[in-house]
Amino acid sequence: MPSPPSAPQVSDRFPGPRRGDCPWCGSARLRTRLRGPRAVALDECEACAHAFQNPRSPADAPSSPGRSHRATARALALAGLADPESWLDVGTGHGHFPEAAREFFPYTSFDGLDPTARVERALAEGRVEEAHRGLLTTPGVTDRLRARYDVVSMLHHLAHVPDPRAELRAALAVLRPGGHLVVEAPAPDSAYATLLGSLWPPHRHAHLLPLPNLEAELHALGCTVTTTARVHQPQDLTTAFPRPLRAPLRAATALDHLLGPLTRRTRFANTYRVVARRPGRS
């Protein structure tokens, strides 16, 4: 697969220019996946199936009202991430995942990285031990953190960055040899994407990365994929309703949680989780 041209380094909160090629593989074979409200347009690459906002909309913002940080941490403990000394949570926000993960990794030092001031609040409230402001691709960040961590987690982070491929490679750079990378991302092939159309929450994100693309990139970088799982976060129906509509919102939330256990291993599962090991000895 040819190396794509560099993606424009725009802010997470501001639109970027319309582009005529895929930010993942560089192909010019694009088609419109959907057009949504507030002039949001999602294009899909016919060569690699990567979907992305084109042009980038300022409406994209990380949000996961139905995410269970504790369930994710428990699943990672069961996946065999035994007693890591140091862990960087990328896109940590207020640091709720490190806070939840301490129950299962009590001897691990958790640091947080986020492009917003939320990470500084996470530090002040004791959810992370070190706070780093920016993206991994922000100049100087990767060099400062190079080879420091046994685990790097990117939970619903790659969908919001200007260049997810560069961010992924930078994540491997801050891992120690033999360290583990954890990625969670929306599954573009979820049946909810078709059912809800432009109301499906991930259709508001900057990027939708197909699982095969991520796995292929990790293999190309010499990593061993140790775990791949489809999981479901009960939020699709909840976030489809505007918050002022309280009665439908409450009903949708109840239905999301009722259907959640039934959809985990079906085409409706809305998330995938990948754990990969960086080459080398720890």
Score class of each variant (00 low, 15 high):
1 M>K: 11
3 S>T: 15
4 P>S: 05
4 P>A: 14
7 A>N: 07
9 Q>M: 05
12 D>F: 08
16 G>L: 11
31 R>S: 11
31 R>F: 06
33 R>V: 12
33 R>H: 15
35 R>T: 05
36 G>C: 12
39 A>G: 09
42 L>T: 06
50 H>I: 12
54 N>C: 14
60 D>Y: 07
60 D>A: 15
62 P>F: 12
62 P>C: 04
63 S>H: 13
64 S>P: 05
67 R>C: 04
69 H>M: 09
71 A>I: 08
72 T>H: 10
72 T>Q: 03
77 A>H: 11
81 L>D: 01
90 V>G: 10
92 T>E: 04
98 P>C: 09
99 E>R: 05
99 E>I: 03
108 T>N: 02
109 S>I: 09
110 F>C: 00
117 A>Y: 01
119 V>H: 02
121 R>H: 14
139 P>W: 06
140 G>T: 06
140 G>L: 05
141 V>E: 01
154 M>C: 14
155 L>I: 09
155 L>D: 12
157 H>T: 15
160 H>G: 00
161 V>M: 01
164 P>A: 08
172 L>F: 09
174 V>Q: 01
176 R>Q: 12
179 G>Y: 01
181 L>K: 00
182 V>W: 11
186 P>L: 06
187 A>P: 02
187 A>E: 06
192 Y>H: 10
197 G>E: 12
199 L>Q: 09
200 W>Y: 15
201 P>N: 00
204 R>M: 06
206 A>W: 03
222 G>A: 08
222 G>P: 06
224 T>W: 02
225 V>D: 10
226 T>S: 11
227 T>K: 12
228 T>L: 15
229 A>M: 02
232 H>S: 04
242 P>T: 03
252 A>P: 08
258 L>F: 12
258 L>P: 00
259 L>A: 04
273 R>I: 03
